[in-house]
């Protein structure tokens, strides 16, 4: 067993063995979930708090189900609606919660680095469920698991990530993870949606779908936020769809068995064609959601083991 982290704040601090450890365990949980007995006891007796400072349906539900399947006592706090409005600072909120002795804290926050800040102030395991434009590690892990299951490996693949890279924490975590495991990464999108300094990331950058998708094994589409569509970053929704929306024709440039991914929620007809998204031969979008629960079970299980070990007198992991 090789996983020494106290928190899961991002992909950046993880070693590739640690990533593989999470994925291997998640694979087992994925099989368990498909069986008749969905429940385990890895988190029995532990308290998991989901703190979402930004609205989320899918990620929050996924973390909640993952915790409940492993026996944790799960509590959801919609922070956007509560203390922030009363002027409480993030650190005060963290200290208040910490006094209630949670074991696992799942946090989403609109500011990059906010989850790191919070993790410094509490003595439980913290999982980053997305912070600003920084990282969204469980999304990258579930994407990696989905790719590994579909392709049979997670190295030496040509992987294209398309769309709004600049504002996407999903893209950052994926680039870090897939890079650590030695894949070839291409970023495709208009230059207004590319982060600065992207040329130094060890990736290839394209502003043309046909060229960028040439020979790809995996095509990951990103969500384009509504507020970025009209004139600010791209001229219009329809021009974006014409040039960067994934449809069967553009996908023709990729390998014949290339898979199509999307972190959801999708804008059908903006970044992806609806029929293609539903094509069970190409799209693995539903499988991504399924793997999301498995990966979160695995991540919380591993963090809980380290947490328990740190609380016993011997306190040393095997």
């Amino acid at each position: 067993m090789s996983f020494r982290q106290k928190h899961l704040l991002g992909i950046e601090p993880l070693r590739s063995e640690e990533i593989t450890t999470i994925l291997d365990l998640a694979d087992r949980y994925a099989e368990m979930e498909r069986g008749t007995r969905k429940h385990g006891d890895a988190l029995t007796g532990l308290t998991q708090i989901n703190m979402f400072f930004e609205a989320s349906t899918r990620t929050q539900a996924s973390f909640e189900i993952a915790g409940k399947r492993l026996g944790a006592d799960v509590m959801n706090m919609a922070m956007a609606a509560s203390s922030l409005k009363k002027g409480e600072t993030l650190i005060d909120t963290a200290l208040t919660l910490n006094a209630m002795h949670p074991d696992l804290l799942v946090v989403r926050h609109p500011h990059s680095g906010a989850v790191n800040l919070l993790a410094e102030k509490v003595n439980c395991a913290v999982l980053n469920a997305g912070d600003g434009r920084h990282e969204h590690p469980t999304q990258a892990l579930l994407d990696a698991l989905t790719i590994r299951r579909a392709k049979g490996r997670l190295h030496r693949l040509n992987i294209a990530i398309c769309g709004d890279i600049a504002h996407s924490r999903v893209a950052r975590s994926n680039i870090l993870l897939l890079g650590k495991l030695e894949n070839r990464i291409r970023l495709i999108g208009p230059p207004t949606l590319m982060p600065s300094g992207v040329a130094e990331w060890g990736v290839e950058v394209y502003d043309n779908m046909a060229e960028g998708l040439e020979g790809c094994d995996v095509v990951m589409m990103l969500r384009l936020q509504k507020e970025r569509m009209d004139g600010a970053f791209i001229p219009s929704e329809r021009e974006y769809y014409h040039r960067f929306g994934l449809d069967a024709e553009k996908l023709g440039a990729a390998k014949e068995d290339a898979i199509v991914m999307h972190p959801g929620p999708m804008n059908r007809g903006v970044e992806i064609d609806g029929t293609l998204a539903d094509d069970i031969n190409r799209s693995v979008i539903q499988e991504q959601v399924e793997m999301g629960v498995a990966v979160r079970m695995a991540a919380m299980d591993l963090l809980a083991r380290n947490l328990r070990a740190s609380r016993t007198p011997e306190g040393v992991m095997a």
Partner: peptide, 15 residues
């Protein structure tokens, strides 16, 4: 300041 570091940290940056 914009660049590789700013983008990795996901922080709003200026050229």
């Amino acid at each position: 300041t914009s660049g590789k570091f700013a983008s990795l940290r996901g922080l709003p940056a200026v050229s």
